[in-house]
Amino acid sequence: MSGTRRPSLTVSVCVAVLAAAWVTVAGRASALESSKETIGELLKIQAQVQSRLDLVSRAVVAVESDDGAASGVIVSPDGLVMTAAHVTTNPGRKILLHLADGTKTGCKSLGLDKSTDAAMMRIDGDRKDWPYVPLCRDLRMAKPGTWCFALGHPGGYDAKRGPVLRVGRVLKQMANGLQTDCVLMGGDSGGPLFNLDGEVIGIHSQIWEERDQNVHVSVAPFLRAWDTLKQSHVVRVWNTGVGGWLGVMTRISSAAELEIAEVAKDSPAAKAGLQSGDVIVTLDGERMLDQPQFSSAINSRAAGQRISLRLRGKSGPRVVEVSLGTKPVED
């Protein structure tokens, strides 16, 4: 029972502030509901949901950990699983997954972002043919009024029942989340919210008392910190306004140029092949002259954003594209 009382202070406060706005949304939603859709339109939605349901259900997993039951969704053929941070709570935890077809498999929690409740896991082993679903990368698509559907394992895994469907609409779009009237409950946490094309648009996170107060993490915090999460880092800095992280230390060379002194292990810079001794000439076309200018240029960009660096190294000039990450913080 500890988990249901676990809401971190940050999240509780956020939600408390939003509560007043939600009441309005709920009222408006009901008025909207009672008039709009004709039977023809409803049948079209039904056809869309049913045409996707079998395929996407295969990628929905039931999660069993020491803390209790939850849900998740496989998003790559090699077994990356999206879920909620309050489900995994820490990187490196052993977790058991049940797939809709009855397959049972071990899994390990990777990185998580406690401020938004986004988390990632990876299925054990080398299988490269896991059923998986695509993500919707166009965040603008999840506008209020958009039809969507939720899957998950409310109440825990039940082999005879399988994943449970709920169809509803987006009521509100927030910076890192979505509110819908797809009703959730205990056990749904970490399960996927889909658009009618069968693409993931959110991950179930929290409920408020009313039936239309169901909150999902949007895919935004996942996309922003994809690599960081995959590398099992605990993301905590995003909301503090620190911004993107490249993972280099710089110095001014004897020729008065901005030069890379050191590259942090496993950082976005290391992955992009940046090396000590490389001279940074421009960032997104802007000439880099000194360290303060460079670090402020990095910090003012969001994690997840791609930057283009013109470098001059031992083997000559080159242009490198790097996705900024988030600076890992020891948990």
């Binding site: 029972m1 500890s2 988990g3 249901t4 009382r5 676990r6 809401p7 999240v11 509780s12 939600v15 408390a16 509560a19 709920a26 939603a29 009901s30 509901e33 009672s34 008039s35 859709e37 004709t38 039977i39 409803l42 803390d67 209790g68 039951a69 939850a70 909620a84 309050h86 489900v87 998950g152 409310p154 109440g155 825990g156 709920r166 169809v167 509803g168 009237d181 797809c182 009703v183 959730l184 409950m185 205990g186 056990g187 749904d188 946490s189 970490g190 179930h204 996170s205 929290q206 409920i207 408020w208 008392e209 009313e210 039936r211 239309d212």
Partner: peptide, 25 residues
Amino acid sequence: RALVFCLLHGPLLRAGAPATAPPDA
């Protein structure tokens, strides 16, 4: 106790969506 994460710890929570029917039905 309003805000609850949807992780299941044994006992359950409960409720459904505010969708109403099309007028003709």
